[in-house]
Simulated scan of single mutants.
Amino acid sequence: MGDGDGGPQDFLTIKYNGTTGAILWTAVFDALAVDQAMGVAIGPDGNPVVTGISCGPWFSSPKCDFRTVKYHGSSGTILWNVTYDSGGQDFARGVTVDPNGDVFVVGASNFMDVVTIKYRGTDGTTVWTVAYSHTTFGTGEEQGWGVAVGSDGHPVVTGNSRTGSNQNVRTVKLDGSTGAIWWNTIFGSAAGEEAKGVAVGPDGNPVVTGSVNPTGGVDNDNFLTVKYDGSTGAVLWNVTFDTGGKDVGSGVAVGPDGSPVVTGLTRQSGSSFNFLTIKYLQQLTVSIDIKPGSDPNSINLSSAGVIPVAILGSATFDAMQVDPATVALAGASVKLIGKGTKYSCSTEDVNADGFVDLVCHVVTAQFMIEPGDSVAVLEAQTFDGLAIRGQDSIKVVPD
């Protein structure tokens, strides 16, 4: 459907019957030469909100602004529509609605800065606008891609932070009332990561999905999913998924049981793209025993040796399914033995409960522990991608 001045795109919003998939209504929104919808969310009043961009004129250096439209959930009638113009090029990419019905929109301005806007749900009035730029964090570029809000009413924004050729994921939690930054967390490495979507689970913890390219090769992206602590921004776990081709995550939702579902695209070499959808179990808390048989669990940070840690099996958890390559105790990885291809792990029943435990030896020199710390946290993954976490007491002793 055209718009009268040569532009080829309009918003198209469709409501389906949840039981049968029958179309209940369709709504076309046409403002400028190009109107492109990028995200949709439904509030507690049952009314959908769509966000995207409006650009024009079509034939001569089109200027783009945020465009956000709220529809009546029963009829598709437009209730309000608003724009945001920074004076430059503005691209809205994500939208969410809080428990009070107020709307949060996130996007990028001038390809370098993240803009988040809170609108009053009843009439679209702007409550606040917050922009954090590449200069805020001392980077070369910041891009906003996704926004979600939990029951606390405070939005979580995710996107990409680039300095030079290295790109990582930046996730920021904002105060829902003022837009002030509560916390911001960078996740990534030299491999290069990209975030596209975020959701907040019933536990209040956000989950971000996107992709990582561990080798930098063509079509070598893997799904990346990261879960954060909603209060502090600390990373609780992260997992990747690789089909052997190009795998790019773009959307995530978290169910009532806390299990995230991520979706995106996958392509094998020479083939076309297909949908790829994965459901993860929520992070599993397991029991561990640092230095089995020892009490207290004394650690000398100057030691050049190793420390044993047992991941305890149980009636509901098979410790043999833990991938030794992913085990990290307070930042220390498992020692490699032989020709450097075998991990120093073995199986035994250290607590004599009838269940097999996995005992691994981690490199003491790699510990990220400070004198005075009293707890060490172990993080790992099973071979099928389930994140696990456990902790035990420690006592740091002098040389």
Score class of each variant (00 low, 15 high):
residue 68 T to D: 04
residue 233 G to W: 03
residue 11 F to A: 00
residue 147 V to Q: 11
residue 329 L to T: 03
residue 306 V to T: 14
residue 89 Q to A: 13
residue 104 F to V: 01
residue 271 S to Y: 10
residue 196 K to L: 14
residue 224 L to Y: 14
residue 397 V to L: 06
residue 86 S to H: 05
residue 59 F to K: 05
residue 162 R to T: 12
residue 28 V to C: 02
residue 292 P to F: 02
residue 40 V to K: 07
residue 159 G to D: 01
residue 262 V to R: 05
residue 329 L to M: 05
residue 265 L to M: 12
residue 140 G to P: 08
residue 244 G to T: 05
residue 174 L to C: 11
residue 59 F to Y: 13
residue 285 T to C: 00
residue 331 G to W: 07
residue 279 K to L: 01
residue 192 G to V: 02
residue 42 I to Q: 05
residue 130 V to T: 15
residue 88 G to I: 07
residue 329 L to I: 04
residue 106 V to E: 11
residue 230 G to R: 08
residue 265 L to D: 13
residue 117 I to F: 07
residue 362 V to I: 01
residue 190 A to K: 07
residue 70 K to E: 04
residue 231 S to T: 11
residue 356 V to C: 07
residue 51 T to N: 06
residue 359 V to A: 03
residue 186 I to S: 15
residue 153 G to L: 04
residue 202 P to W: 00
residue 238 N to G: 11
residue 323 D to M: 09
residue 4 G to C: 00
residue 7 G to L: 00
residue 347 T to W: 14
residue 275 F to D: 12
residue 204 G to H: 08
residue 19 T to A: 15
residue 310 A to K: 07
residue 377 V to S: 04
residue 376 A to V: 01
residue 27 A to M: 03
residue 21 G to V: 00
residue 8 P to N: 12
residue 365 A to G: 00
residue 213 N to D: 15
residue 70 K to R: 09
residue 10 D to M: 10
residue 321 Q to E: 15
residue 373 D to L: 10
residue 7 G to Y: 02
residue 266 T to E: 12
residue 310 A to G: 07
residue 17 N to Y: 06
residue 79 L to Y: 01
residue 310 A to T: 08
residue 139 T to C: 15
residue 28 V to A: 02
residue 49 V to L: 03
residue 74 S to W: 00
residue 49 V to C: 07
residue 148 A to M: 07
residue 9 Q to N: 15
residue 177 S to Y: 13
residue 257 D to T: 01
residue 78 I to L: 02
residue 98 D to N: 15
residue 104 F to D: 09
residue 43 G to I: 02
residue 396 V to N: 03
residue 208 V to E: 04
residue 171 T to Y: 01
residue 265 L to W: 14
residue 353 D to F: 01
residue 240 T to Y: 07
residue 359 V to E: 01
residue 109 S to A: 11
residue 244 G to P: 05
residue 68 T to F: 03
residue 38 M to N: 14
residue 17 N to H: 05
residue 268 Q to T: 10
residue 136 T to A: 10
residue 379 E to W: 00
residue 239 V to C: 03
residue 308 P to K: 13
residue 57 P to M: 10
residue 224 L to D: 04
residue 48 P to N: 09
residue 340 G to A: 03
residue 160 N to M: 11
residue 91 F to E: 13
residue 120 R to T: 11
residue 71 Y to P: 11
residue 53 I to C: 04
residue 120 R to M: 10
residue 175 D to M: 11
residue 256 P to K: 00
residue 25 W to K: 04
residue 143 Q to N: 14
residue 392 D to G: 07
residue 244 G to V: 09
residue 95 V to M: 03
residue 15 K to D: 06
residue 395 K to N: 13
residue 13 T to V: 14
residue 250 S to D: 12
residue 294 S to A: 15
residue 232 T to L: 05
residue 74 S to K: 09
residue 398 P to D: 12
residue 19 T to I: 11
residue 322 V to G: 12
residue 291 K to V: 13
residue 230 G to E: 09
residue 166 N to I: 15
residue 154 H to G: 12
residue 68 T to V: 10
residue 125 T to Q: 14
residue 372 G to C: 07
residue 58 W to A: 13
